[in-house]
Design a protein around this nucleic acid. Structure first.
Lengths: 136, 136
DNA sequence: CTGAATCCGGTCAGATACTG
DNA sequence: CAGTATCTGACCGGATTCAG
């Protein structure tokens, strides 16, 4: 037929909405800081520059790949700077930019809410799980 | 040998760190609100209760599965309530709890930062990408 | 020391079909 | 109307290996 099917129209709506979401600043920021390693790196850099190896040690669980990937994306977004000292062996320092520093209060707000309310959340979870022991 | 290898000790460190992260309140909150649909649902509910079908329509891109899953997890965490009206057809309303409402300022802080700084971030991205056109 | 490249196993979101 | 159940393909993180 010539007219679009319902599913086709739904698909169009979905794509338009996806495009809308991609442009939403808050969505983009959430995608950035919600990354598992991003927040840890930001915190690790919050009180001064750090070497790659320092970060790798401080954030014990991270793999080289993920650490590098995270740092690259943060550099791309202008949140951290990367400075190479052509020594032997090579030395690379990462540091928060002013823009990166401006992000810290937001992180603090998240942390603050979490610490104040996490007990309620955990209690609610327990209650929920106890009331439905079958759904696992 | 009897002594643990370096990789074994590293593995232990990693697991200990993972456990530590799982207990970190801020990490847990980030995991929660960073979920793609959670923020959208919270915003959609921020000015009053909504029916399932309303949410499904408002958040155009979401699938039934994801919407239900998201709502369940929010209910489990005590952020929204679910109330069924045994009618024909069934009617289900979702509403923010007080705890859920308390989360809105945090969302607002994120949104605010994003709207104020997204341009800098985007500009930085363009600059970065222009300077390395080969890395794609 | 810092990082790139590759492979791979698990996870997760979406489509589809079915139910009270 | 408001879900549940199942399947599947895409994506992602980690381990490993190689390089400047």
């Amino acid at each position: 037929m010539v007219t679009r099917t319902a599913s086709e129209r739904r698909e169009e709506r979905r794509q338009a909405y996806d495009a809308y979401l991609k442009e939403c600043p808050a969505r983009q920021l959430l995608d950035r800081i919600s990354d598992k390693w991003v927040s840890l790196v930001l915190v690790a850099l919050s009180d001064g520059p750090r070497r790659y190896s320092e970060l790798n040690h401080t954030i014990a669980g991270v793999s080289q790949k993920m650490l590098t990937q995270t740092l690259r994306s943060l550099e791309r977004d202008g949140l951290v700077t990367r400075s190479i000292t052509a020594d032997v062996p090579v030395r690379v320092d990462y540091e928060l930019t002013p823009l990166g520093h401006k992000l810290m209060p937001v992180m603090a707000a998240i942390k603050s809410w979490a610490e104040e309310n996490i007990e309620d959340v955990l209690a609610s979870r327990e209650r929920y799980d106890r009331s439905r022991p079958d759904n696992d």
